[in-house]
Structures are given as C-alpha cells and as structure tokens.
Design a protein around this nucleic acid. Structure first.
Lengths: 204, 204
DNA sequence: GTCTATAAAAAGATAGAC
DNA sequence: GTCTATCTTTTTATAGAC
C-alpha cells in the first residue's frame, strides 16, 4: 500500500530494527543508514544524535506495545476472564514483536534507565491488583498476594520470549515450533491461573 | 582473609562486575582496568582480547551459577518436594547474583550467542521433565505439559529479577524491599505449584 | 534534502622501556 | 610483570558542496 516511504520513515523503520536486535550499545549508526538506504549524515540531519534517535524509537514502541488493554479489561465481567484476556493479548502481542521484551528490559536496567521506566504503563499493574481485590471481596477468587500474582502472570507470558534461544535449544525447536509452543501456552497458562485462583479452594 | 589478590584475580573480579552490569557491548576495557587498579595493557597481557576475557567470565559464572541442583534433586522423594527445592535454591541463588539472568539472556540472544547456549545446563530441563513424568505415572501429580511446566517455574523465579527496576518502581520499593519481596515469593510460588500440580484435582 | 569527505572522540590492542 | 606512550580501528558527529 504505502510504497512511498519518506526518508524520515525509512530511518525510523531501520533504526527500530537495528536497536531492537542489537540494543543501544550494540547498535551502529552505519548499519541503520545502510538498512535505510541513505547515508549516515542524514541520520544526524533528522535526529541530531544516536541518543535522540533511540529515544524516539523507545517512545514509539512502548506506545504501540502496550495497547488499550486497560479499556478492554473493563469489558470483561469476572476477574478470571480478565486474566484470560490479558494472557491472550499479551502473548499475541509479543509473538508479533518478539524483540521488545528484552529491549525494554535492557533499557530500564541500564544506569540511565530510570527515565525510561516512567514511560511504561506501570499504572496497569496497580489497576489489575485493584481488580483482583474487588474480585476477592466478591468471593470470586482465592486469597493470594496481588502484587506477586501480577508479577507471576507477566513473568510466565514474557520470560519465554527472552529465553527463546535456550528454549529452542532445549526442545530442539525451529522458530515456527517455538511460536506454536507459545500459542499453546496461552491455554496452559489460563488453566494454571484457574488452579491458582479458583479451583481446589475447598481443600484449603 | 585473602588480602593478597594477585593481578589476574583482580582483573577477573573487575571484569565480572563490569560485564555483568553493562553486558558485552556496554563494557569498557578501561573501566575494567580502573576497577582492577591496573592499566589497560595488563588486560591484554593476561587475556589477549576483550572477547577472550568475556568468555572466561561467562564460563566461570555459568559454572558457579547452576550448582549441583541435579544431585540434590535426587535426594527429595516426591516431585512436589523437588519443585519446592528448585524454587528455593533458584531464587536464593539469583538474590546472591542478581545480574546473572539478564547477562545470560543477552549473551544467548546475540548473533554469536549460539556457542554460549551449549555451555548452559540444558540437560536439567529434560531431567526435570523426566522426573515429572515419573511422578505422573505414580499419580502424584495432575497431567500438564511438562515442558510448559518447567518453563513456567523458571519464568516465575527468574523474570522478576530482570524486571527489577520496573517492579521497584511499580511497588515503590527499595532494593532491600525488593529482596524481601523475592524471599516471600518463594512461599507464594510453592503454593502456586501445589495448586497447579495437586490440589483441586477432584474438581476436574 | 542529500551527498562526500572529514573531523573528533572513543575504544581495543600493541611496542618498548623498566 | 608492570608501566607509559602510541597505534589502529571503530564509531559518532559535522562541514561544506550541490
């Protein structure tokens, strides 16, 4: 459709690709220029410095990566259905943009990473905790630590992607196999969360 | 005790620190030299190149990081107890060496990372899967996908540490608070695994 | 806006004296 | 073994012509 990609767009697309795969330190301006099929000078003409270009990429990716989960969450009735939705949405998203998790983790773990953390939708974590507490009062779910719960859900969704090379080696998988495994993982995690949150309650 | 740390040891200690925090690309030979309180020339005298020095650090850390969990696993009778042991051991280990997970993940995700994967104790994953299958036959545990199960356990233990800055921000935590949270996490995860593997079985 | 050429800075690696 | 000084390469950034 959009055959006509102007220079700025070409640079952003190339920069995104390079920064995602290599991280800030590993990324090379020359490689970005090559991929955008322009020369290095243009990078600085449009974005002044590597730092500034990186920040543009980070901001753009974060904005698109954490979509309107927030609003969607309100549409689902029970907490367990909200959790189902989250797992599906989150894993689907990472399958589409598999490099983002490690990219974000590296960025926030760097010495100057504090400023980037504030750009993440951290409020979502508190929102979900709040939803859980409401469900707990309604007797929908078992009592667990809400913060640990949210951390666990995010962990089980995101970690396999940052550990992908190890998992592929351990299971002798191709990339397609791996994505298939992650698709199947959705159902498995939804089962886990049911076990944790609702089933077996009477046994306690 | 060992006041006398020779040059090689000083270099290795400094290199470990720098590589862990900054990763290969972000690490600077000059910084390693400064921290070891020697000059850059010595780094090359002892280790020839940045690459060789990095490999030494990686090998050393991996060897110490995944300890004799394998043998310890045999000592525990039921599978659920083995899982308990794994969770405790793994989280305790990462609390002591919090930079290792991201360090390892970055290394194996790099273009030349394949060679490093083989140095990881991947066989442990298969071993645990095997232990699970044995427990399943004995009727000790519910039927789940063994591979997904192992991935989930490792995810829930390791991911919080690579996402530490985000978690600290979300919970408004100090480093001490965070470590406390991870200590408490051991018990929480052991509960989860009981819900997933054994309790509530009759309800299915 | 786009290019070539080049500067400037950073970083890895080595030479050679002691 | 250890140091200072220096080389070489890499990488970011800019100048200036078109």
């Amino acid at each position: 459709m959009e055959e006509t990609q102007n220079t700025e767009e070409k640079i952003l697309a190339a920069a995104e690709e390079v920064f995602m795969k290599a991280g800030y330190d590993g990324a090379r301006m020359q490689e970005i220029a090559n991929k955008a099929e322009i020369n290095k000078a243009m990078l600085h003409y449009y974005f002044r410095s590597k730092d500034k270009l990186f920040e543009k990429i980070f901001d753009g990716k974060v904005k698109h990566f954490f979509p309107e989960i927030s609003e969607e969450l309100d549409k689902n009735q029970t907490f367990i259905r909200k959790v189902d939705f989250m797992i599906d949405a989150y894993i689907s998203l990472i399958i589409r943009f598999p490099y983002i998790p490690l990219f974000v983790l590296n960025t926030v773990n760097k010495d100057n990473g504090a400023s980037f953390i504030t750009k993440l939708p951290i409020s979502l974590i508190k929102k979900i905790s709040g939803e859980y507490m409401a469900a707990l009062e309604k007797g929908e779910v078992r009592k667990v630590d809400p913060f640990q719960l949210v951390i666990s859900i995010l962990s089980m969704c995101a970690f396999p992607f940052v550990a992908r090379p190890i998992i592929m080696q351990a299971g002798n998988l191709t990339k397609a196999d791996f994505n298939q495994l992650m698709e199947e993982r959705k159902a498995e995690l939804k089962r886990y969360l049911r076990f944790i949150l609702v089933e077996g309650e009477s046994r306690i």
